[in-house]
């Protein structure tokens, strides 16, 4: 992944909720180039946190891979 795309992804991980900042920062440090992350980041903060924290299991099945990786990180 080129520098610019990596930087954009990094900034998209700056959120309104601290919980997401922390999880996403930790994930990015280990996986700075996961392009699948970007689509997930279009979700609203609270919706995303509900998915990452396991409160919500009803989400787009195409995202199951990245959701599982985020939950495990």
């Amino acid at each position: 992944m080129e520098r610019e795309a990596r930087e954009r992804l990094r900034w998209k991980c700056r959120r309104g909720l601290l919980e997401l900042d922390l999880v996403l920062q930790r994930y990015l440090e280990r996986n700075p180039q996961d392009a699948e992350l970007s689509e997930l980041l279009d979700l609203a903060d609270n919706d995303l946190w509900d998915i990452v924290s396991g409160r919500n299991e009803r989400y787009d099945g195409r995202l199951s891979g990245i959701v599982a990786r985020l939950r495990a990180s």
Binding site: R14, R15, G16, L17, L18, A44, D45, N46
Partner: peptide, 11 residues
């Protein structure tokens, strides 16, 4: 700095 609905008011 970020998309408006990602402001900290969201918390």
């Amino acid at each position: 700095k970020v998309f408006p609905t990602r402001s900290h008011t969201v918390a």
